[in-house]
Computed example of a mutant assay.
Amino acid sequence: MDKVMRLATEKGVVIFTKSSCCLCYAVKILFEEIGVSPEVHEIDTDPDGREMEKALTRLGCKAPVPAVFIGGKLMGSTNEIMSMHLSGSLTQLLKPYQTSSLS
């Protein structure tokens, strides 16, 4: 749990993923399209990956990946992120972390 929390707060936007997960890929692309470059941690390539997955579940992620943290706070997985995006609240939340201007 300590490793997950440390990594989740190292950068403004952090996503825990698995390299073979298509939903993880979709969430990463969404953030890039919004103009945010998240810190991505692929837990299936980390020696502590199984423990990290358990920690993400204990933190409240219904699906352990993708697990999205914004400003060190767990925002959720694909369903929560897509709901926020469709309501417009995700873009507002990500404004401080945008690295490129949107047209």
Rank of each mutant, 00 (worst) to 15 (best):
E39W: 06
E39G: 03
V40I: 12
V40Q: 08
H41Y: 13
H41S: 08
E42G: 05
E42Y: 14
E42D: 15
E42S: 14
E42I: 07
I43S: 11
I43R: 13
D44Y: 15
D44G: 15
T45C: 15
T45V: 14
D46Y: 07
D46R: 00
D46G: 07
D46I: 00
D46E: 14
P47Y: 11
D48G: 12
D48Y: 05
D48T: 00
D48K: 10
D48N: 15
D48C: 13
G49Q: 05
G49V: 01
R50P: 04
R50N: 09
R50E: 15
R50W: 09
E51M: 15
E51F: 13
M52Q: 11
K54W: 09
A55F: 02
A55N: 07
L56N: 02
L56V: 01
T57S: 01
T57E: 09
R58A: 13
R58K: 13
R58Y: 00
L59M: 11
L59P: 05
G60L: 01
G60H: 00
G60N: 01
C61P: 06
C61G: 02
K62I: 02
A63W: 06
A63D: 07
A63F: 03
P64S: 15
P64N: 10
P64A: 13
P66W: 03
P66L: 07
P66K: 10
P66F: 06
A67F: 08
A67L: 11
V68W: 07
V68I: 12
V68D: 06
F69W: 00
I70M: 03
I70C: 01
G72V: 08
G72I: 07
G72W: 05
K73E: 12
K73H: 05
K73N: 09
M75K: 06
G76A: 08
G76D: 10
G76R: 03
S77E: 12
S77C: 15
S77D: 12
S77T: 10
T78G: 10
E80P: 07
E80L: 02
E80V: 00
E80W: 02
I81K: 08
I81E: 02
I81G: 13
I81D: 07
M82Y: 14
S83I: 03
S83E: 09
S83G: 06
S83A: 10
M84Y: 07
H85S: 12
H85P: 10
H85Q: 11
H85E: 10
H85L: 12
L86C: 05
S87Y: 10
G88A: 06
S89I: 04
L90A: 00
L90R: 04
L90M: 03
L90I: 03
L90Q: 02
